[in-house]
């Protein structure tokens, strides 16, 4: 059997401002993930950094410790690699006042 692998779209064409996060994604079958955030449109201001969050139940979230820069221009990408994340993953960010980025967030998961 080949190792299961899946590319999941968890946010598409969503404009992030202030406190923002992807929908929860359940992937307990996966042992690793690469997370990409692509800016689909010109970026307003300096969006800052995003963080990986994990959860015991898909409802309560804790920072996993991994952070990465959000893209600062159209078609820019930011990414992070994570392992040992348990069952749930999401990407969250607290954008400063005046900043906005329209994102495509993809999870690239492998068993």
């Amino acid at each position: 059997m080949l190792r299961e692998s899946f590319a999941a779209i968890v946010a598409r064409n969503e404009t992030w401002t202030g406190k923002s996060a992807t929908e929860p994604y359940e992937a307990g079958w996966a042992s690793e993930a690469v997370v990409f955030v692509r800016a689909l449109k010109p970026v307003t201001g300096k969006p800052g950094r995003a963080r990986i969050e994990i959860s015991p139940d898909g409802m309560r979230w804790a920072p996993e410790g991994t952070e990465f820069d959000l893209p600062t221009e159209k078609d820019g990408i930011g990414f992070a690699r994570v392992e040992r994340f348990g069952t749930w993953l999401r990407v969250a960010a607290d954008l400063p006042d005046g900043a906005a980025v329209t994102v495509l967030v993809t999870l690239h998961l492998k068993a």
Partner: peptide, 27 residues
């Protein structure tokens, strides 16, 4: 442009493989 996608479809996201894990009883 993705803005041309109808709102009904724009809300859709990828399915998951789930063990139906619950906060009180586990998978």
């Amino acid at each position: 442009d993705l803005d041309s996608m109808l709102p009904g479809y724009a809300q859709h996201l990828s399915p998951m493989l789930s063990t139906l894990p619950h906060w009180d009883a586990g998978s």
